[in-house]
Computed example of a mutant assay.
Amino acid sequence: MASAPIRLGTRRSALAQAQSGHVADALAKVAGRPVELVPIVSEGDTNRASLSEIGGTGIFANRLREALVAGECDILVHSLKDLPTAVPPELVIAATPLREDARDVVITRGGTPLHELHRGSRVGTGAPRRIAQVRRRAPHAEVVDIRGNVDSRLERVSTGELDAVILAAAGLSRLRPEMKLHREDLGLAEWPTAPGQGALAVETVADAPAELIEALAQLEDEATRLAVTVERAILAGLEVGCQAPMAAHAVVTGDSIRVRAVVYEPGGGRRIGLDVTESLNRGYIRRNGSGNGADAADGADPMRTARDIGDSAAHRLLEQGAADLLPRE
């Protein structure tokens, strides 16, 4: 029935519920139907082991996707940075809404910048990429591998258990927690973040009703889709999971896209990076990172071009020795 609620599957965490609620409100307006949240418990919600130990690939998405295929819900909302790059053939990412702030932030009690924290300061984060970045930015600090929701991480700083935690700016924007702590925004040029960070993916089954697909399409932000397509193509090209110690961030400006990507040694010692700007109108992307307009195909698909740019970037990183720094999955 056209008036039946659209069932949106989501993890039970406060952050997942907040971002799913935002999508639900937007979808209800364009679809003219109510949208109800269907809480689903993922492995990532029950397995309390460190993400650096369990890998993280699909840990938040697999159970939700099983529920979608089984008909327990009609759509899913994922944090795109937690979503494996391989999409099952029976599913489709039907929308990528406008991206939130993609930066990381440092939360401290006194406002001391991360690089000025005193020797032995305890900095909490569970992501291998952030661990490597902290060890580069604040080599005298002690990195504490943590899990938990945003509120519990903030509380550990408030009580003095930790001197700082690293969080995603998008999560703070969506949750808006009350806190009397200091925030340091980390610029993407020197502190790039995970592929897809700050972006959401709305997923449904490939044979979903046409009216649902059409409604979801109205939530799409093309610049966000192009940027995250490049970022995730780099991740796929490196053949590692979304918990690898690497970063990739792309920004669309007009017909061009700027891509920054870095692969880190887990201990924070070495890093291999690139920073390139490519045209999205060109159908041919050379391996040296520049386009060739003479070889461009008329009407080239921008999304295909975005994937080619990401694949080319991954190839260049591997040529520079990135494989030596990355865990294989």
Score class of each variant (00 low, 15 high):
residue 121 S to E: 02
residue 139 P to A: 00
residue 204 T to G: 14
residue 105 V to G: 00
residue 27 L to G: 07
residue 300 A to K: 03
residue 221 D to H: 07
residue 184 E to A: 08
residue 167 L to G: 02
residue 324 D to E: 15
residue 143 V to P: 02
residue 325 L to R: 04
residue 294 A to I: 12
residue 9 G to E: 12
residue 304 R to C: 08
residue 62 N to A: 15
residue 259 V to C: 05
residue 251 V to N: 05
residue 20 S to V: 10
residue 321 G to S: 05
residue 48 R to T: 14
residue 212 L to T: 01
residue 180 K to C: 06
residue 324 D to T: 07
residue 15 L to N: 06
residue 291 G to C: 14
residue 88 P to L: 14
residue 107 I to A: 07
residue 133 Q to R: 00
residue 115 H to F: 13
residue 79 S to T: 09
residue 117 L to A: 01
residue 63 R to W: 07
residue 241 G to F: 01
residue 253 T to Q: 14
residue 322 A to Y: 03
residue 161 E to D: 14
residue 27 L to A: 09
residue 278 E to K: 03
residue 72 E to P: 06
residue 192 P to S: 11
residue 90 E to P: 06
residue 38 V to R: 06
residue 294 A to S: 11
residue 26 A to Q: 13
residue 180 K to T: 05
residue 16 A to Q: 08
residue 300 A to P: 06
residue 228 V to W: 02
residue 295 D to N: 03
residue 129 R to M: 15
residue 277 T to G: 00
residue 109 R to I: 01
residue 203 E to L: 09
residue 169 A to S: 14
residue 124 G to V: 03
residue 174 R to V: 13
residue 79 S to Y: 01
residue 33 R to I: 14
residue 6 I to L: 08
residue 260 R to F: 12
residue 71 G to E: 07
residue 321 G to E: 13
residue 60 F to S: 03
residue 244 A to S: 02
residue 324 D to C: 00
residue 48 R to V: 14
residue 41 V to L: 12
residue 316 R to P: 14
residue 300 A to F: 04
residue 241 G to I: 01
residue 162 L to Q: 04
residue 281 N to Q: 14
residue 161 E to G: 00
residue 233 A to Q: 05
residue 15 L to H: 06
residue 64 L to P: 06
residue 86 A to P: 10
residue 151 D to V: 10
residue 55 G to W: 09
residue 70 A to C: 09
residue 137 R to E: 00
residue 31 A to P: 01
residue 128 P to C: 10
residue 124 G to C: 12
residue 290 S to P: 00
residue 160 G to W: 12
residue 17 Q to G: 04
residue 303 M to I: 13
residue 312 S to C: 14
residue 48 R to P: 02
residue 19 Q to V: 15
residue 149 N to T: 02
residue 192 P to F: 11
residue 82 D to C: 02
residue 229 T to W: 08
residue 278 E to I: 00
residue 121 S to I: 04
residue 203 E to V: 15
residue 119 R to D: 15
residue 103 R to K: 09
residue 40 I to G: 05
residue 55 G to M: 11
residue 307 R to T: 12
residue 70 A to T: 04
residue 277 T to Y: 08
residue 61 A to H: 02
residue 112 T to K: 05
residue 63 R to Y: 10
residue 228 V to Y: 06
residue 321 G to D: 12
residue 22 H to E: 15
residue 45 D to Y: 02
residue 152 S to G: 04
residue 57 T to L: 13
residue 65 R to M: 15
residue 277 T to Q: 12
residue 61 A to C: 15
residue 105 V to R: 03
residue 292 N to R: 09
residue 274 L to T: 10
residue 112 T to E: 12
residue 131 I to R: 04
residue 326 L to N: 09
residue 237 G to V: 00
residue 321 G to C: 11
residue 176 R to D: 15
residue 65 R to G: 11
residue 101 D to G: 05
residue 313 A to G: 04
residue 264 Y to M: 11
residue 210 A to R: 05
residue 252 V to K: 07
residue 83 L to F: 13
residue 20 S to W: 07
residue 229 T to N: 05
residue 286 R to Q: 15
residue 90 E to A: 10
residue 105 V to H: 02
residue 260 R to H: 13
residue 202 V to M: 03
residue 13 S to F: 01
residue 189 A to S: 11
residue 94 A to P: 01
residue 177 P to V: 00
residue 245 P to L: 09
residue 126 G to Q: 08
